[in-house]
């Protein structure tokens, strides 16, 4: 059984050999590559704490077999900031109190980055809540999370317009 795969993780190409086909992307990241930002909450696709981007799109890494994602580009929370400069979504979560205990936060932030990239409207709180319903926050920081997504979305699209001008 050929269980070798190539992944680009946070911009870095990695050749990986698995000893077991059952390894999920989440377990690969956390247990073997020591990227522990993505969290194992329910491990069944219900809580969203394990959200990462695969080829730019947010998915639940707990329900993804690593071997099946051979060739994919993966972004985790560790790959968002540029050195000490936080990603606008990370900054917005701080400014809007978008978390309390922080356990769901990497998943919330990756989900928000994915959502903003999807280009669906992020200005309406109802649409943001609906689009973020795959991320559970037991502390109930939803109000701050919604505000952070709307704020970051506005800043990112303003940035895009500036770059285009």
């Amino acid at each position: 059984m050929n269980l070798s795969l190539t992944l680009t993780i946070n911009g870095e190409r990695r050749e990986i050999v698995l000893d077991d086909p059952r390894v999920t992307l989440l377990d690969l990241l956390r247990e073997r590559l020591h990227l522990t930002g993505a969290k194992k909450g329910c491990d069944r696709g219900q809580c969203g704490a394990c959200t990462i981007l695969v080829d730019g799109e947010r998915i639940n890494s707990c329900l993804a077999l690593a071997i099946s994602y051979d060739g994919a580009a993966i972004t985790t929370i560790e790959g968002l900031a540029e050195g000490d400069k936080l990603h606008p979504v990370q900054q917005a979560f701080i400014e809007h109190d978008g978390f309390q205990c922080g356990f769901c936060t990497p998943g919330q932030i990756m989900s928000a980055v994915g959502l903003i990239a999807e280009g669906q409207a992020c200005d309406d709180p109802e649409r943001v809540r609906e689009a973020m319903s795959g991320n559970i926050c037991r502390c109930g920081a939803y109000k701050g999370i919604t505000e952070a997504v709307i704020d970051a979305s506005g800043k990112l699209s303003a940035g895009k317009e500036r770059d285009a001008a």
Partner: peptide, 9 residues
Amino acid sequence: GASAQLRNA
């Protein structure tokens, strides 16, 4: 149906 993450996969 489902969540945005699940629909993407």
